Simulated assay, not measured.
Amino acid sequence: MSLAGKTLFISGGSRGIGLSIALRAARDGANVTIAAKTAEPHPKLPGTIYTAAEEIEKAGGKALPAICDIRDEAQVGEAVARTVERFGGIDICVNNASAIQLTGTLETDMKRFDLMHQINTRGTFLVSKLCIPHLKLAANPHILNLAPPLDMAAKWFKNHVAYTMAKFGMSMCTLGMSAEFARHGIAVNSLWPLTAIDTAAVRNLLGGANVAAMSRSPSIMADAAYAILNRPARETTGNFFIDEEVLRAEGVIDFSIYAPGTKGPLAGDFFVPDDVFERTETQVSRVFN
């Protein structure tokens, strides 16, 4: 497997899972556009598009840092055009950018509601839409959405219906576009973690250090994404992949490398269907159910 010479367009890839996916591809010598808003250091969040680009180059890839608010069609269009101009095309689109607020209906102001839908659902739709004309020209084109399985259980909606709607909107892009573009040979899939991932969102919003200690590193998502993006596009579309299951299919047995030092069960992530937890060999605590 190799992504050498492939061009990835990654939204929101200045930190966390998006950056980890970028670095895994860069180790092969891939080209990566980091399309994100963070151009200046944030007081609470690590990394900018420029520090991400430096890391990608050090890892062996080529990087294009692009200041891009994916709510703005013109900015996305410019970032896509710059990518094609710099690298000659786009092989892979990774929709990683996301906004989260876990509040109930009465506590969710409409400005935040709009933000989540504009970034999660509309942003995924827009970035995909503008990349697809170039993906049609690629040899093994993939769209990968960092979005959950469509598990329509009330428990995933009752405490934060606005966020769930916005996140499932990304998943519906997978469902619809995988069928729409199958004849063009474009793979459209979702990838979601079995467990919580130790990111800024977990540390700042989802339980802090306690949940972070029960989480895996972003590298498990990067390795799973890498495996998916190397598969034949025409044979790999319309799937809602879970990271651990992808890697087990690749022959991975030891998952301790993704959670070094962790003792006891890991925190199961949001939106993971009960049947997935039931068939996993990993000890998982359903912290977010």
Rank of each mutant, 00 (worst) to 15 (best):
S190G: 09
F168A: 01
R122D: 08
I100M: 15
N96G: 07
A196Q: 11
L130C: 02
M172S: 06
H134G: 03
T108W: 01
R112D: 13
F125W: 12
L126R: 09
A99G: 05
M165G: 15
N120Y: 04
Q118Y: 00
N189W: 15
N159R: 11
H134V: 09
N210S: 10
T195S: 14
E180L: 15
H134M: 04
K167D: 00
Y163V: 01
E107C: 08
V202Y: 14
C173E: 12
V188W: 01
A153V: 12
W156I: 14
C173N: 14
P148D: 08
L135Q: 07
M177F: 14
L150Q: 10
S171P: 03
R122N: 12
M165E: 12
R112K: 15
S98K: 05
D198F: 09
K136D: 05
A187D: 00
S190W: 06
P149I: 00
N204K: 05
A147C: 13
P133F: 11
S178N: 02
A153H: 13
A99N: 06
C131A: 11
C173M: 14
A179S: 10
A200S: 15
A162T: 11
Y163K: 05
V161N: 11
Q101D: 13
A153W: 09
T121Q: 15
F157D: 08
W156Y: 11
A162E: 15
A138I: 00
D109Q: 13
P149E: 00
I132M: 01
A182H: 04
S215R: 03
V188R: 00
A153C: 06
I186F: 11
R112M: 13
G208S: 05
F125L: 07
L137W: 01
N95P: 02
A182D: 08
K129T: 10
S171I: 03
M172N: 09
L206I: 12
L191Q: 05
L205P: 06
L115Q: 11
H160W: 05
A97V: 02
A139K: 13
N189E: 10
A99E: 06
D109I: 07
Q118G: 10
A154W: 03
H142N: 07
M214G: 02
F113L: 02
L175E: 15
K158H: 07
A147E: 07
L175T: 01
T124I: 03
A196T: 13
K111S: 09
G104V: 08
L102M: 14
E107F: 09
V127H: 02
A99P: 00
V202D: 13
S215F: 07
W156A: 05
S215N: 09
Y163A: 03
L206Q: 15
L137Q: 14
E180G: 10
L126Q: 13
S215D: 09
A182K: 15
H117Y: 10
S98H: 04
M170I: 06
V188I: 10
L106H: 07
L137V: 07
A209P: 10
L175N: 13
R122K: 14
W156S: 04
L206D: 13
P148N: 13
R203N: 04
N210Q: 08
V211R: 06
N189H: 12
V94I: 12
A201D: 10
L135C: 05
L146T: 01
L146W: 08
N204V: 00
V202Q: 12
V161H: 05
A196W: 08
E107D: 15
I186S: 12
N145E: 04
N204L: 14
D151H: 02
H134C: 05
L146Q: 08
